[in-house]
Structures are given as structure tokens and as C-alpha cells.
């Protein structure tokens, strides 16, 4: 299967995502934000960074990039899309995922490890994990405070769309384990059809024990396993 990494002006985790899937042995190509085709990708990654400087609002300008029309129709036809950090923010802005992102409640940028509990293992992104598994994945963001109104939250929870929650090392959801104030300690969600994932933590930064951990691999490997079984 082939991955495509979209490069917006201001993306800065594009190379990290590229290398993460390449190191796992999968073909991958960059897709420039002005490109009008997805180069035959089976999974699109919207990487982290500060697309368009995050001016106006995070992800608000990137959603109008020419490539996004293709990404949206690809997703609507069941294509796999993963938005990481700024990519998650873009997915919220373009309506592929519900909710909105606010500034971290502590009003500062945070770069640190976070522990994520896997909440739903029957998705393309989590199928190699076991329910309740705790992953260590680093975060790095200033606006990762996920918000959705109560009815929307109920729906997300009811439909199993919350895939990752910030927890402590023991796997418990606590206020201290929440690094940014996200509602329900939410770290990552998928759409109702399960083919679009948005998450604030950076799995591409933990795909090698040399970098302090390799839990991020599980997400990319799940995607490949799901694709090959399909």
C-alpha cells in the first residue's frame, strides 16, 4: 500500500511522517498542496506543523489549499486519512471531523510525553492494539484543547469515535493526565465511518527505540494490516 504525505506551506512534520512509513518499508510520496491528484495513495497523511503560519486560526487557511478538495472526496469515498497535530486541526476546519480546537488550557505550548489509552480497536488505525492498551506518544502543540458540544460528545462516545484518551501511566483518565484541557481527555477521534483519524499526539516521533519508544508504529502497522485484509 502507498502513503501520501501532504505538504502545506508551513508543514514541519512532513519529513518525519514520510520517514516513519518509509522506515516501515512502505512506498510513500510527498503531495504538494497545489497538486490536484493524490498520486495513487491508499492513505493520506496530513502532517503536523504550522500550515500558513497558523495565522487566522490553526488549519483555517490550509483547508482551502487545492489539494484539500481531493482529500475530502477521497475521504468521502472511504479512503484512509490521518491528520496529526496540525493535520487534525485541518480535518476539523474542513469538516471531515466534528468539533473544534482551542488553545491549551495552560496557555502555553507543551512538548512532552503523553500516555494514551486505546478506546476502540475495531478501526483501521487501531486494529493491532488491544482494548485499554496504554501507548506512550509525545505531544507538541499550543492548541490541542479539543472541544465539542455535549450532544456531539455523546454521539462520539456512543459510536466509538473516541480512539485515544489522555491517561496516566496506569491507564486511568485523570485531570492531571490531560495536558491541554481537552473535553473527555480526548486525544484522537475518527469520523462516523471510521476511515478518517485525527490526533494531537505524534506517532511519527516514536517509531524507533532510539527515539525513546516505538508505540507510534502500531498505528501505521494497523493501517497496513487493515488495508491488506480488506
Amino acid at each position: 500500500m502507498k502513503f501520501g504525505v501532504v505538504v502545506f506551506p508551513g508543514s514541519n512534520c512532513d519529513a518525519d511522517c514520510f520517514h516513519a512509513v518509509q522506515d516501515l518499508g512502505h512506498p510513500v510520496e510527498y503531495i504538494w498542496h497545489k497538486d490536484l491528484d493524490l498520486k495513487g495513495s491508499d492513505c493520506i497523511i496530513l502532517p503536523g506543523g504550522f500550515s500558513y503560519g497558523d495565522y487566522l486560526r490553526t488549519g483555517a487557511i490550509a483547508r482551502f489549499s487545492p489539494v484539500m478538495e481531493q482529500v475530502i472526496s477521497f475521504a468521502q469515498n472511504g479512503g484512509l486519512v490521518i491528520g496529526i497535530c496540525n493535520g487534525f486541526q485541518v480535518l476539523l476546519e474542513c469538516g471531515l471531523l466534528p468539533g473544534a480546537m482551542l488553545r491549551n488550557d495552560i496557555l502555553q505550548f507543551r512538548c512532552q510525553d503523553s500516555w494514551l489509552r486505546v478506546e476502540n480497536t475495531s478501526t483501521p488505525f487501531t486494529n493491532l492494539m488491544h482494548a485499554g492498551q496504554v501507548l506512550r506518544v509525545p505531544i507538541a502543540h499550543g492548541e490541542g484543547n479539543y472541544f465539542i458540544e455535549p450532544e456531539g460528545l455523546l454521539q462520539l462516545e456512543a459510536q466509538g469515535q473516541v480512539l485515544f484518551r489522555y491517561v496516566n501511566q496506569a491507564g486511568q483518565v485523570t485531570p492531571e493526565a490531560n495536558p491541554n484541557g481537552s473535553v473527555g481527555n480526548i486525544a484522537g477521534i475518527c469520523n462516523a465511518t471510521g476511515n478518517v483519524l485525527g490526533m494531537m499526539p505524534h506517532p511519527e516521533r516514536c517509531v524507533d527505540e532510539l527515539l525513546g519508544g516505538a508505540h507510534g508504529k502500531l498505528i501505521f502497522q494497523s493501517i497496513v494490516a487493515w488495508f491488506e485484509r480488506r
Binding site: 519529513a15 502555553q108 505550548f109 507538541a140 516521533r205 517509531v207
Partner: peptide, 16 residues
């Protein structure tokens, strides 16, 4: 101080 800096972007920081 350093938790406010992205010290891992680039995915090459081996000793933090």
C-alpha cells in the same frame, strides 16, 4: 522552559 519548546520535531532527538 524546555517543555514550551518543541524539542522533538524532526524525529531525530535521541537525548532530550
Amino acid at each position: 522552559v524546555y517543555r514550551q519548546y518543541d524539542h522533538q520535531v524532526g524525529a531525530n532527538t535521541v537525548i532530550l
